[in-house]
Design a protein around this nucleic acid. Structure first.
Lengths: 270, 270
DNA sequence: AAGTGGTCTAGACCACAAT
DNA sequence: TTGTGGTCTAGACCACTTA
């Protein structure tokens, strides 16, 4: 027995369906809130909650006094799909692949320990992987996991099970992440595995992932071939923007500014 | 006479203030909703609305059954600050500068017209600028504005007034944007103005901006020196992620996939 | 077992858009 | 002027955390 989802969630799904299927076309007006209340036999609260979610995703917009209008459908991605390369590949209908270059257990030095919020000399697990889509190299991932998470990775067969899939099986659920995006030149390691010239531009995403208790579970540095993957963000006035433009050099990197503490030599020993 | 802001907004401000000022420290529990209802003398609706906003910004997190806890303060940026280089610079305490390389009125070719949602051969206004922070080159911006917006830019003195500042003065308010982020190699134009080698990695943000009526007002291609600026996004399970990872080569670029239709030669005539 | 947040209902008033 | 969405109140039930 699975319990029924909340009313606002059901209504949200129904509305998204009508927009995606073209029943309501771009620019057209939605029914009034009162009409939705009547049609679905629920009260105004859940109706407004569903509409608020549509607005926040940019599927709908409008002002006071008039019913909202449908807007260009900008698919959004679930958190799981976003942080997991494997789930992402499957969602876009590609075949994910990977080559595990290095899995090691190391003692965290000062910098890394600070970023992972663990004691210095804690045994962290480092994973360096080449990621593929349909057999073609797309990204180099270098990650460092806190001991609580990393110990499961040493035992797991990463060629078969995804990292997050493995961790979820042990009750560790990635819940929140902070991503910093910039561009870097390919070094010898990336040039070799991604099959590009040294110095080629790569799109870098440095991520800190938090579990359900708000504790850091890993940090990762992912370098993408920019002609294979990009990142898109929708932005609007009606809520503080989730995307922040940051200045790099000036201030201290107290906010986790630019790079990661993952030493450059990891993975180069292979 | 300015009317008082909504209750939920006042409460939100008060809560943010207590978190930022350290009255409530990271990891500590917030008061229960009931306590806030009592303290502020309002009902539960606005209280929940204020808390929801805090959650969506990652300032607070938690689960059912227990009061939420304070989380690492991830400053978020207003939409205006995000899309305006000038406002951004001022907010981070730097001196914005710029050099207008080219301002032209051109007839839109097919590709550009389609991206701007205007008739082919419409007179669009193109602006190419070098942007500076504290006198140092940081970004090259190439933008194309629809006629309704562009006509004000030809008359304005861009060295003095910001683009969006000028447009707002004429009742055109940027309201929503779609940003696509990737990395590119510096071409001769960028190499010259940003003072780097040809082929250096640059962080590129392609943006489509919409006005208050949902109409496209401009498209822009901004190329940053990656060691001068980066972009950060906070992500969480509890709402569909605003950040989308996209595959580039495979499918058609119907979603506005990668690049912009801004011809590469714009600005190179200078 | 008690208390908390998650959800829902019913009714109300106001600012603003449509006409 | 009429109707819409934006905001607020009061009260209720349930699932879950906490002690």
């Amino acid at each position: 027995m699975t319990s029924t989802p909340p009313l606002y969630s059901q209504l949200y799904d129904a509305l998204v369906d009508r927009i995606r299927s073209g029943v309501w076309k771009e620019g057209e007006r939605l029914p009034t809130e009162q009409a939705l209340v009547a049609e679905f036999g629920i009260s105004r609260g859940p109706v407004r909650q569903a509409l608020a979610q549509l607005r926040s995703e940019g599927l709908v917009f409008g002002t006071r006094g008039a019913p909202p209008r449908v807007q260009r459908a900008a698919r959004s991605q679930s958190f799981e799909t976003f942080i997991s390369f494997t789930e992402w590949a499957e969602e876009i209908g590609r075949v994910p692949g990977q080559k595990v270059i290095e899995v090691t257990r190391r003692l965290a030095d000062g910098d890394l320990a600070r970023q992972l919020h663990v004691e210095e000399d804690s045994p962290v697990v480092a994973v360096v992987r080449l990621r593929l889509l349909d057999g073609e190299p797309v990204m180099i991932e270098r990650g460092a996991y806190v001991p609580a998470a990393g110990r499961y990775l040493l035992a797991a067969d990463l060629e078969v099970d995804g990292v997050y899939q493995t961790l979820r099986g042990h009750g560790i659920h990635p819940t929140r992440a902070r991503n910093v995006i910039d561009a870097v030149a390919a070094g010898p390691l990336e040039a070799r595995w991604l099959e590009v010239e040294v110095g080629s531009p790569l799109l870098r995403v440095c991520r800190t992932t938090f579990d359900q208790n708000g504790e850091i579970m890993d940090i990762a540095e992912n370098k993408y071939l920019p002609n294979k993957a990009t990142f898109a963000v929708e932005n609007s006035v009606r809520s503080p923007t989730p995307l922040t433009r940051m200045s790099v050099d000036g201030g201290a990197t107290t906010e986790g500014g630019g790079g990661t503490a993952i030493p450059a030599e990891w993975g180069s020993g292979s």
